[in-house]
Design a binder for these strands. Structure first.
Length: 574
RNA sequence: GCUCCAGUAGCUCAGUGGAUAGAGCAUUGGUUUCCUAAACCAAGUGUCGCAGGUUCGAGUCCUGCCUGGAGCGCCA
């Protein structure tokens, strides 16, 4: 399927090139000529503001627009070109072209607007990557939804996509997790234990401990924390996968942080950075002021291994290996991204919460310190998300407490249980990642009947419904004459043909939320049409009904494609 | 103190430097003899945080300021 705005852009460029060649315009470098759908009726279907050329061409904008309009090469999709003051070039699409696209849409089916922008290229999306120390929270959920939608859009753009989860199963946190479970188990066996405040407090560990006690009795009493760490990690891994699967998210690969230790890769990376002259050994970083040095000294630190990240614009240097010999989190993270780049991805998208902002910068500095180009890496930063609900008395929004008690909604499992996988996905996606998101639990739950989620899905349901009814009546769209379609149906086709551009915008700008808004806009075009354009109605002549039935077949294809791009289900009935 | 994000309708938010700034929710009133009511039609609300600047043209770009959020660890 053609991206018509791109086609028109090329035609305008051709017209300009020719005008310059013919001497109708002075010599100048032709800038990009962005074509977009105008906002108002009567301004055509695609529009280009020719005013932007006035200065370059040293000519009255209206004259330039007229010149372009007069010399624009023809194309099968163009009906007419109009010029509007002060210099807009408005393109009206050909009706017969639009009608023909109904069959094209049906032919393409699930590949409707499958683009070739990324043909032959590999893309990776690393997302979620939550520490395996507890449930998937509402914050992870937003990350998961955005990352998966990004992956689906990259696939639609033609990339071969791998979904990866960086599994942080090394480091102190896992030891604490193992010890936390061990203490809960011993508590369950009746021992009096003072549970440390900095251990994992979640009730889920108490539950797992109870299960272990039921299954093994006191047989694990003498087992070390390592045993409990393995048990806890396996349980967390299962839990995370199950939660994500409930919203139709699966990763192709779980990349274990521990593998970077086992393979010695972290030390190889550190050595390479050292060879490039970016590593030094000291009690404090080179640019530290007296106050900072005094602070570090008061903590009694021995010398540590520092990365001179300030070379690459960082505000201070960073510790790679602590004075006790253990690496910080940053070193394996650099090694991991180094490994990613060596795997040859043309694009490596990384979805992170803004609390990882500094960390991500340091990783990029580290990649440069390895003399590698971090350009393929692109980070989508997700702003904070809170579950909120309105206080009935004050009318103010309040944050849902970070408690694991039943009735609070701060995990993915809770959100899905209270709403639906589709509602969670849509609401998490339909927001710019740059905006903080208040997920209004009551709104998504209570108003689930008048919700954009179902508004979009209902469009597909309605298409499916017509075919069910037609089948019962023994009616079909064989031999449909598309020329019988009316202006209403064309309105929908025009809008649907924008999908290619939406996918491209979403991919090139790393803004997957655009697809969610487009889906809603398209549904808003569809429903009024459906209300008026009937198929199985006594006043509709059989030939017209066939054409309309064919149209609804195409509309169903478009909505199916959209719903799948958002990772939502396409139900046949509500 | 420094870096990044945000500030647009009562609320939650869209908005490629272009033409008269848009949705949903909430509010009010209406709509189906034959597939469609989780739908449709109609009504209304704006100092686009503030002040300058660039431009033929600024919600969009630049500078300063105000407000809210995230970060700036020998944590992960």
């Amino acid at each position: 399927m053609k991206q018509l705005n791109k086609e028109l852009e090329q035609l305008i460029e051709a017209a300009l090139t020719r005008a310059i060649h013919d001497g109708d315009l002075p010599e100048f470098e032709i800038p990009p000529v962005p074509v977009s759908p105008p906002k108002r009726l009567g301004q055509g279907d695609l529009s280009y503001p020719g005013m932007s050329l006035a200065k370059l061409a040293r000519k009255n904008p209206l004259e330039i627009a007229n010149l372009i309009a007069a010399t624009l090469p023809g194309a099968d999709f163009i009906d007419k070109i109009e010029v509007a003051p002060p210099g807009f070039i408005n393109c009206f699409l050909s009706e017969s072209y639009l009608k023909r696209q109904v069959d094209r849409i049906i032919e393409e089916g699930e590949n409707f607007f499958q683009l070739d922008i990324g043909a032959g290229q590999m893309a990776q999306v690393e997302f979620v990557s939550a520490n395996p120390s507890g449930p998937i929270t509402i914050g992870h959920t937003r990350n998961a939804v955005v990352g998966d939608a990004m992956a689906r859009l990259l696939e639609a753009a033609g990339y071969e996509v791998q979904r990866e989860y960086y599994y942080n199963n090394a480091g102190n946190q896992m030891i604490v997790l193992g010890k936390s479970l061990m203490l809960r188990y011993l508590q369950r066996l009746g021992e009096e234990i003072d549970f440390p405040a900095d251990y994992y407090q979640g009730a889920y560990l108490v539950e797992i401990a109870a299960e272990l006690a039921a299954e093994h009795g006191d047989a694990l009493k003498e087992a070390g924390w390592e045993k409990f760490k393995d048990i806890a990690e396996a349980r967390m891994f299962q839990w995370i996968n199950r939660s994500l699967a409930a919203i139709d998210i699966k990763h192709d690969r779980f990349y274990n942080e521990t593998s970077l230790f086992e393979s010695q890769q972290i030390w190889a990376v550190l050595e390479a950075m050292r060879e490039n002259g970016h590593i030094y050994h000291s009690t404090h970083w080179e640019g530290a002021d007296d106050e900072e040095i005094a602070d570090l000294r008061s903590k009694g630190y021995q010398p540590a291994t520092w990365f001179r990240s300030t070379t690459f614009g960082d505000e201070k240097d960073r510790v790679m290996v602590k004075s006790d010999g253990a690496p910080t989190y940053t070193l394996p993270d650099i090694a991991y991204h180094c490994d990613k780049l060596e795997r040859g991805f043309d694009i490596a998208v990384n979805v992170l919460g803004t609390d990882h902002f500094s960390q991500a910068q340091v990783v990029k500095h580290g990649i440069r310190a390895l003399n590698m180009d971090p350009e393929p890496i692109h980070v989508i930063f997700i702003q904070m998300v809170r579950a909120v609900r309105r206080n009935q008395e004050s009318g103010e929004y309040e944050t849902v407490k970070q408690s694991k008690r039943a009735g609070d909604f701060d995990t993915l499992d809770d959100l899905v249980a209270m709403t639906s996988a589709d509602a969670v996905r849509y609401h998490m996606l339909a927001r710019s990642p740059n905006s903080q998101l208040d997920f209004d639990v009551d709104q998504v739950v209570k108003q689930s009947n008048e919700n954009p989620v179902y508004y979009i899905q209902n469009a597909y349901v309605r298409c499916a419904g017509i075919f069910r009814e037609a089948k019962e009546r023994g009616f079909n769209d064989d031999g449909a004459d598309l020329s019988l379609l009316g202006e209403n149906e064309l309105k929908f086709i025009r809008k649907a043909l924008e999908l290619g551009n939406v996918i491209e915008q979403a991919v090139t700008n790393y803004e997957p939320h655009k697809i969610a808004f487009f889906a809603h806009e398209l549904a808003a075009v569809f429903h009024p049409i459906y209300d008026q354009v009937r198929v199985l109605h006594s006043e509709v002549p059989s030939e017209v009904a066939k054409a309309r039935l064919r149209f609804y077949r195409a509309a169903g294809v478009v909505f199916y494609r959209l719903l799948r791009l958002m990772g939502m289900s396409a139900p046949e009935r509500m």
